[in-house]
Computed example of a mutant assay.
Amino acid sequence: MESLTNADPGEWLRSLLDTKWHDMHTVVPRGFLAYARIFHPVERDRPKDTGTWHGHARTDVYPLECEKVSWAAVAQAFGTHMHPLAQFHRVLGTESNGQEILDAAGWRYSAPRTGNLAPETLAAAAVHLGKHTSTPDQGVSAVWEGWGGLTSSAGYAELAVSSDGVHLENKVAAATLGSGPGSGLLQAEVVNGETLDLPGRAYYLFNAAPQFYIDSDWVNHVPWHHSPGWPQSPNILWPTDGQWVLVTEIDFDSTVIAGSPELISALVQDPTIEALPLQEGADLTWDADIPNRPVR
């Protein structure tokens, strides 16, 4: 995994992005024929003994049954409507406000991760991405500069999970405060090098092509996360020929892919990926014009 010494490979994106927020195109490039939104998986759990959180005390820690589900499954559980511009709190039918969200069957839901596409989902998408470029073995991965502990150890701390996988141990692997550039995951020459500066974001670039992500073992070979157990996907990915762009914006709970109609169709039809087609100009922060409604 080689870091790139300059931002030239990403400069072509700059002219395709808006400098002011109107819709998704401050982070997703304009000008492609088709777009798809990949919804990040949702995690839910319930106690193994009773199979429901309803009527279950919270005073002790219990063995849990955990699984990942689609947004469509969440909508089915809560009687709401799933659509391309869906927002997760509306799929739940309520704002969590820090409270537990339970469905009628007793499952407890966690919000999908923002700014991070699950390795298995990225691997499934990469199969299609590699088929829709003439340069599947040549491409660039961009990683947001602001992830904790990436450029410096200053202020970064890491909690360790105990051997039972449930409790957080009372020890903190904290880096020394005040450490300078290069004391984090990336070497000083990378941190002090050139970044790709796009509207509101700056990124470090790496030589990591689409084919690299087909095997989910990629989590063991990138320099930008602390542990394969807590992997970080690239925030932007594109092949050298620029036939498509994958964008996992740090504040989005979904990933947007811009490309050809054929690529978008393949992603949407893949049963291992929850994806829906998007229109150019889609605003993923507001869906009041398409209210959720009961499933019929």
Rank of each mutant, 00 (worst) to 15 (best):
A36Y: 11
L102D: 11
D103G: 11
T151H: 01
D49N: 09
A86C: 11
T19V: 09
T59S: 14
F206R: 00
V222K: 01
A282P: 02
E120K: 14
S179A: 15
R201E: 13
Q99M: 13
T135F: 05
R90S: 01
S183I: 03
A72S: 15
N6I: 03
A73P: 01
T135Q: 14
L276Q: 11
L92S: 09
R30C: 02
V143M: 08
V28G: 01
P277H: 09
E274A: 03
S15F: 00
L129N: 03
L150N: 07
L276I: 07
A174M: 10
L198Y: 01
G93Q: 08
T285Y: 09
A142H: 04
W238Q: 02
A142N: 07
G229S: 12
T121I: 14
S70F: 05
A258N: 01
A173P: 00
P277G: 08
Q138L: 15
P119M: 08
P291N: 08
Q232A: 08
L198T: 10
L92R: 08
V91S: 08
D241E: 10
E67V: 10
V143S: 07
T285K: 13
T59A: 13
S254W: 06
D283C: 13
F88Y: 15
H221L: 06
G229T: 04
A125Y: 04
F32M: 02
E249Y: 10
